[in-house]
Amino acid sequence: MKTTDTTIDFGTFWEGVWKENPVFVMMLGMCPTLAVTSSATNALVMGVSTAFVLVCSGALVSMLRYLIPKEVRIATYIVIIATFVTIVSYVLQAYAPEIYKVLGVFVDLIVVNCIILGRAEAYASKNSVLRSVVNAAGMGAGFTFALLCLGAVREILGSGTLFGVHLFSAHFQPWLVMVLPPGGFFVLGGWLLLFNWLKQRVASAGTLQEETARAQ
């Protein structure tokens, strides 16, 4: 095994939130992103559940990384992830049955969220326990942030509320399609457009500065 960098700094956490945001940059875990973000509350619960599974499975995979035979590693990861998802699913059923009813099958589908398996394979199996946990927490935070971005926009436009609080007067005409399936695609597409535009502006500002510096 290669000697890996063992320092833990803020970057280990932050890269998951911003530079390698699982939803906006890596386009992973699209299904829950689109399906459960019809309100900000759902988005938050889904994000936190996924983050919990990410951190726990990251820790366990990292602890067992010398014990798991290479040939069956994917199957082992899946079983570890499925165990934690079952825990989350039962906890939600016990303490938040209304939210569980809304999220429904998508809680169980955290198992096949590619972010979690991807992190287990690409990061936790190669790094120390603490590093894996910090990185998984960052990824979880990034995922929750992305879900909240979508959920908030869709809830405000689609039902005129945020976390169930009414924002507008009674004359507000809800834009119903935003909470329906097409709205999910449109809002995520819109966010990606915005980020692309920002990235291009930053890039072109960079080249402009370089050119002026060269001209001088």
């Binding site: 386009m27 399609v177 329906l180 399936p181 097409p182 709205g183 999910g184 695609f185 449109f186 995520l188 597409g189 990606l192 457009l193 692309n196 535009w197 291009q200």
Partner: peptide, 22 residues
């Protein structure tokens, strides 16, 4: 347009398809 290339445009397309399927 440059900004719309790639995933953003695909998602918009998927949204329209989804509207049609409604």
């Amino acid at each position: 347009p440059n900004v719309a290339q790639g995933a953003a445009l695909s998602l918009m397309l998927a949204g329209i398809l989804s509207l049609a399927f409604m």
